[in-house]
């Protein structure tokens, strides 16, 4: 459970990882997060001074790793909020609320886990890999070689790029299809952009492979208050990504909403 207020925390480092940044924050009092949980982040200073006088709302980020008293987050500059966070230096402060949401459910023993990630969506797969004991296959897709350096966040990743500048030339779902051919009893854990998640969902549904998808959606609060982060549920109605997810069983979805993951 998250403490009932946001915490003002010190940035301990900002590491380059190809086209991404890894934000490290000292959070000694944080409850131990489940893999797949997230936090709402905002810079403590100059939050609101970017393009069009944004950002105003905090931004949701998966917890990429917990190392001692530090929480790590994978950032990519895609909008005024993520840009401001990317500028942070050690010693500056952030507001953090979390950990929030429902994380991944770990697999039963002796089932292979296929971790499928795309872009900055690889983040929750890192902390998931840290907690998995059995055989784990990591398949990560990126736009290009600079972004593919993000694969260093996980161990033993196989990489695909859209432009062929690193690893397999094509979508990461090509690699997933081959793995599912080999072992149809594997379990799939995926996080990434909506089109990738939709492809993973469709591929797993076709083969009756259980998949857990960590969804992204624009959200204002992260704890069920704003009703903004909804995705359509199979059979009608909506799920709130923040409290019903962000990790949602693929079979609960008809499709992954293309609006998920709007630039922030």
């Amino acid at each position: 459970m998250a403490p009932f207020t946001r915490r003002r925390l010190a940035v301990t480092g900002m590491d380059e990882l190809g086209a991404y940044r890894v934000l490290r924050v000292a959070d000694p009092d944080a409850p131990e997060p489940d893999p797949g949980q997230f936090a709402m982040l905002a810079a403590a200073e100059r939050w609101g001074g970017g393009d069009e006088e944004r950002p105003y709302l905090p931004r949701a980020f998966s917890i990429a790793r917990r190392v001692g008293a530090e929480s790590h987050f994978l950032l990519e500059d895609v909008g005024p909020g993520s840009r401001r966070l990317c500028e942070l230096q050690a010693g500056e402060r952030v507001w953090l609320l979390g950990p929030l949401g429902r994380g991944f459910r770990l697999p039963p023993a002796r089932r292979r886990s296929l971790l499928v990630g795309g872009g900055a969506g690889i983040a929750p797969l890192a902390i998931l890999q840290d907690g998995l004991a059995g055989e784990v296959v990591v398949l990560l897709g990126f736009r290009d070689a600079a972004r593919a350096q993000g694969a260093g966040l996980l161990d033993g990743a196989r990489v695909a790029t859209d432009d062929g500048s690193a690893g397999h030339h094509g979508p990461v779902t090509d690699l997933l299809a081959a793995e599912l051919e080999r072992d149809p009893l594997a379990l799939v854990y995926a996080c990434g952009p909506a089109p990738m998640l939709e492809a993973v969902r469709a591929m797993c549904a076709e083969r009756s492979v259980p998949a857990q998808l960590a969804l992204e959606a624009p959200m204002a609060c992260g704890f069920g208050g704003c009703f903004g982060c909804t995705v359509a549920r199979r059979g009608g109605g909506y799920l709130r990504v923040c409290v019903d997810g962000p990790v949602i069983d693929a079979e609960q979805l008809e499709h992954v909403d293309p609006h998920a993951g709007a630039p922030a």
């Binding site: 609101g48 069009e52 006088e53 944004r54 950002p55 105003y56 709302l57 959606a217 624009p218 959200m219 204002a220 704003c226 009703f227 903004g228 982060c229 909804t230 995705v231 359509a232 909506y238 909403d257 609006h259 709007a262």
Partner: peptide, 12 residues
């Protein structure tokens, strides 16, 4: 139906 939110200058 989503999308349901849009951030504005100092607002939502």
């Amino acid at each position: 139906p989503p999308p349901r939110l849009w951030e504005t200058p100092a607002g939502l």
